[in-house]
């Protein structure tokens, strides 16, 4: 019984990573919570990992454009090819 619940830190942090995307299963989440009782390091990892997620969310989706210079350069190369 205990064996079933017991996971390594490697496994615990993998579950933690999955749960950052809402993709950890119910039994995985239980295992993770139990692991936290025994392991403060992984609990800390989880806290910092959530922060990493938050920083990434701030980075999301700016619209990217090519600069005028980029486009000019592309045109030039393309024209040469088209000759």
């Amino acid at each position: 019984m205990f064996k079933w619940f017991s996971i390594t830190c490697d496994e615990a942090t993998t579950i933690c990573d999955k749960s950052q995307y809402g993709e950890a299963s119910f039994s995985e989440k239980i295992k993770l919570k139990l692991h936290f009782l025994l392991c403060k390091v992984c609990a800390l990892y989880t806290k910092q990992n959530s922060m990493l997620t938050k920083i990434c969310q701030k980075k999301t989706a700016q619209n990217n454009c090519l600069t005028k210079e980029d486009k000019q350069a592309m045109k030039k190369v393309l024209q040469e090819k088209n000759m």
Binding site: I7, T8, C9, D10, E11, V41, L44, Y45, Q48, M51, L52, K54, I55, C56, K58, K59
Partner: peptide
């Protein structure tokens, strides 16, 4: 096997860490 390697163990970040999420430089560091 499966345990943290000592020098890779997460260290505590200071309490201000949470406030820096908005920081542009932090995003660049990431």
């Amino acid at each position: 096997e499966g345990n943290w390697i000592e020098e890779r163990v997460p260290q505590r970040w200071d309490n201000e860490a949470e406030k820096q999420i908005e920081s542009e430089e932090l995003r660049n560091a990431l």
